[in-house]
Design a protein around this nucleic acid. Structure first.
Length: 273
DNA sequence: ACCACAACCTGGCCGC
DNA sequence: TGCGGCCAGGTTGTGG
């Protein structure tokens, strides 16, 4: 699923529901989902701990627990973190159940089983290398310009590099580049000052819109209640091959870049440098 | 330091 | 209906 806006939505939904609640049990039906430690130790250290706070870092959800423990969750491609009552009907593809007090539970459902959980005493072990949050003070036009100037890779690869900027994935990369009118294959270090400024503004506005629309549901993404977001109705180019560009009407093109499907308008996002 | 690409998984869709 | 091939919001490791 989930890029920054989707993870932010799940985090915001969960916070008031689980803050103060205590974990009473854990069950891993797909043991590999426990990235660290192993399922046995995971259970021993998690049960009895209460949730103090939830934050988001990049595409990770971070639960701050009592006794100095932190639970981290990454949904990867198809993960869902659902807040349910134990008596609610089962959710397909649930491979981890985190039981909470008063019969509540967090269900981690994940068709492709790429998602993972960590239980650590220092979240930096997991998220320490991530680049700045797009909405942090650290993320300035200067930071973006300097980082781009040092990269010869395609601009889209730079946007997807989590150690450069945290939280942008394939959907929002394509949407950002369309909004900034920049071809995804342009070399990062070839951008003009004006293009870098457009890119900076586009990153923020595209992500802001994604959050306001509660995320993009194309296949598997849902919020913590199993509900879909609305941002898929607002997409300009992503998965819109052959459909008219909302700006000029030219059919949207699909290319492959870095093994990822990449959508853009060949007229509004020219490659000439 | 930079690609490209495979691997990790499962299911949906399209064409033959 | 069946089967093969391609596609999929991510990340990591390998090899050139």
């Amino acid at each position: 699923m989930p890029e920054l806006p989707e993870v932010e939505t799940v985090k915001n939904d969960l916070l008031p529901l689980v803050q103060g609640r205590t974990f009473t049990d854990v069950a891993f039906f797909w043991p590999k989902a426990a990235q660290t430690p192993n399922p046995e130790e995971f259970k021993r250290r998690l049960v009895g701990r209460a949730i103090l706070d939830i934050t988001r870092r990049g595409k990770y959800i971070i639960f701050r627990l009592t006794d100095g423990e932190f639970l981290l969750v990454h949904l990867r491609m198809t993960g869902q973190l659902l807040f349910r009552k134990g008596t609610d009907t089962p959710d397909r593809y649930t491979h981890t159940v985190l039981k909470l007090d008063e019969g509540h539970e967090l269900r981690f459902a994940d068709l492709r089983k790429f998602g993972a959980l960590w239980l650590v005493r220092d979240p930096e072990e997991v998220v320490g290398d991530l680049g700045p949050e797009p909405f942090s003070e650290e993320f300035t036009p200067e930071y973006l310009a300097n980082g781009m100037a040092r990269r010869s890779s395609p601009i889209k690869a730079a946007l997807l590099d989590q150690n450069f900027i945290a939280g942008i994935g394939n959907i929002y990369a394509d949407e950002t580049l369309f909004e900034a009118r920049i071809h995804p294959a342009r070399k990062a270090n070839s951008l003009s000052q004006d293009e870098t400024n457009r890119l900076y503004n586009a990153i923020k506005s595209v992500l802001t819109r994604g959050i306001a629309n509660r995320g993009t549901s194309l296949q598997d993404y849902t919020d913590a209640f199993g509900r879909e977001g609305h941002n898929q109705e607002q997409l300009r180019v992503f998965r819109r091959k052959g459909l008219p560009c909302p700006n000029c009407g030219t059919p949207i093109v699909r290319a492959t870049q870095g093994g990822r499907g990449t959508f853009f308008c060949p007229v509004d996002q020219p490659l000439e440098e």
